[in-house]
Amino acid sequence: MYWLALFRPGDWLVAALGLTICGVSIPLAWQGGVAEKAVIKRGGEVFAELDLSRNRQIDVPGPLGITTVRVEKRRVRVVSDPGPRQYCVRQGWLARPGEIAICAPNQVSVQVQGGKEAYDSLSY
């Protein structure tokens, strides 16, 4: 192989190093913890924490009306919302830790959280 002859011995080493970086970066980047619960907030305060392992549906009353949140197959989504633009509904299912759907007009947010948080709280 002509192209293989262009590799010098150390080049293989550097390529292997690069491959290691790729391999190591996958678990570091793609496992942000396992999604365990959905935190529903209304007006900035925690309204409910839903265990993702149990399917259920919950109604959250806000200033505009009822926002309905459903947990199904370890995922969570906003099913219906009285807001005019429906951004949080169209966002669909949330499954990974950190994902969030915000229904701003009705002051409701749904966020997926993993088992361990980096910190409990921050104060300044």
Binding site: L6, F7, D11, L13, V14
Partner: peptide
């Protein structure tokens, strides 16, 4: 002798 353009490039 050991490291060539391929190493530099990576």
């Amino acid at each position: 002798r050991w490291f060539g353009p391929v190493s530099w490039s990576i």
